[in-house]
């Protein structure tokens, strides 16, 4: 039973890793704050996929699902607050360009 699950686990983890890479790449490359939020979103999708894949492989989907549900709820609040910050930054500076935020320097 466990052995049957393993190929699936590889596959899921492989795709989760690809999603993590895309998310981090997006966050590194972009200057637009909204694109950074897209990167955060992709990262948390990868985390949910990885969690459920692990739960399936170890045979306790109940635990994995309950963790994933909590994770999703947290994600929505964090993203909502992040979008709130972005809108606030836009109202203060008239821009969502990260390069405009350079006031704090050592």
């Amino acid at each position: 039973m466990l052995e049957n699950m393993l190929p699936n686990l590889y596959l899921n983890w492989f795709f989760a890793a690809l999603l993590v890479f895309s998310g981090i790449y997006c966050m590194l490359v972009s200057r637009n704050l909204l694109r950074l939020i897209i990167g955060v979103e992709l990262l948390s999708k990868a985390a949910i996929l990885a969690l459920v894949a692990c739960g399936q492989a170890m045979g306790n989907l109940g635990l994995a699902q309950s963790i994933a549900i909590t994770m999703i709820v947290l994600e929505v609040v964090v993203v909502a607050v992040g979008l709130g910050l972005v809108v606030r930054a836009y109202r203060q500076t008239g821009s969502v360009d990260m390069w405009k935020f350079d006031r704090l320097k050592g």
Partner: peptide, 19 residues
């Protein structure tokens, strides 16, 4: 502006850490 900037940096650097 400075406060928002600090919060944004905090947000975008620690969000990947959560993942």
């Amino acid at each position: 502006r400075e406060s928002t900037e600090g919060a944004l940096k905090y947000f975008f650097l620690t969000a990947p850490a959560s993942t």
